[in-house]
C-alpha cells in the first residue's frame, strides 16, 4: 500500500545534485506580429522552437465550483523560444515575444537578466517595433535592430531606418534575413559585441 505511493528513486537526490546544471542565459527577440521572430529563433536554435504561453489576463484558474468551466478560457500570448548550447556550462535561450505594448507585462520578466535584445523590424510595418525600441531604451537593455528583409519589401538604407525609428547612433542597425542561419548568427554576434562594448565590467555582475 505504502509502496504504491510516491516511489522515491534510490539516489534521486544525489543524482540530481550530480547532474551538471548549466547557466541559462537569454536573449530577447522582439518585433511586431509577423516580423519573423520565430523564424529567426528557429534558424539558429538547436531544437525546433518550443512554445508555451502566458495568460493575458489574471486567470481565474482556481475555481470554487465546477460549473462554468467554459468561462475558464482566457486569451493567451504565445512565447516561442529556442536554445543554443554554448558550452557545457552555458545554454543560451532565445525568446521571441510579441512587440505590441499590451504584452509589456511579459517583457518585464523576460528583460530581467537578459543579455540583450534583438528588435526585428519589418520595413513594411516599421511602427510595430516602436514599442520594443522604447521599452529597451528605457530599461537600459542593450539591443540591436535587425531589419528583416522580406521579398517584395522596399529596400531602405540603415540611415533611413535609424531616422524612422529614432534610435541613437550607438545602437547597431543591420540588415538581416531571418530565414538564413548565417544572417541570424551575424545579428546575435553583433548584439553580444555591442553588449560587451556598452557594458563596462564594473557595471555587470
Amino acid at each position: 500500500m505504502a509502496s504504491a505511493d510516491s516511489e522515491t528513486r534510490p539516489g534521486a537526490r544525489e543524482a540530481a545534485q550530480q547532474e551538471p546544471i548549466p547557466q541559462a542565459v537569454k536573449i530577447i527577440v522582439a518585433g511586431g506580429f509577423g516580423a519573423g521572430k520565430t523564424t529567426l529563433v528557429g534558424s539558429v536554435s538547436e531544437i525546433a522552437p518550443l512554445s508555451t504561453e502566458e495568460l493575458m489576463t489574471e486567470a481565474s484558474c482556481g475555481v470554487d465550483d465546477t460549473g462554468g468551466v467554459e468561462d475558464k478560457t482566457t486569451t493567451t500570448v504565445a512565447l516561442d523560444f529556442g536554445r543554443i548550447t554554448i558550452n557545457p556550462d552555458i545554454v543560451l535561450y532565445l525568446f521571441g515575444t510579441p512587440g505590441q505594448d499590451r504584452f509589456w507585462f511579459m517583457w518585464d520578466e523576460l528583460s530581467a537578466g537578459a543579455l540583450g535584445a534583438v528588435v526585428l523590424a519589418d520595413t513594411r510595418r516599421l511602427d510595430t517595433c516602436f514599442h520594443a525600441v522604447d521599452f529597451f531604451e528605457r530599461r537600459g537593455v542593450p539591443f540591436v535592430v535587425a531589419v528583416n528583409r522580406f521579398d517584395g519589401a522596399e529596400d531602405y538604407r540603415v540611415e533611413e531606418v535609424r531616422e524612422a525609428l529614432d534610435v541613437s547612433e550607438g545602437v547597431p542597425i543591420l540588415m538581416a534575413d531571418a530565414r538564413v542561419r548565417t544572417s541570424c548568427k551575424e545579428v546575435l554576434v553583433e548584439l553580444i559585441t555591442h553588449v560587451l562594448r556598452v557594458r563596462s565590467p564594473a557595471l555587470s555582475g
Binding site: 543554443i84 554554448i86 558550452n87 552555458i90 543560451l92 553588449v195
Partner: peptide
C-alpha cells in the same frame, strides 16, 4: 558574454 560570443 565572452563565452556566448565565442559560441555564437
Amino acid at each position: 558574454l565572452h563565452a556566448v560570443l565565442v559560441g555564437l
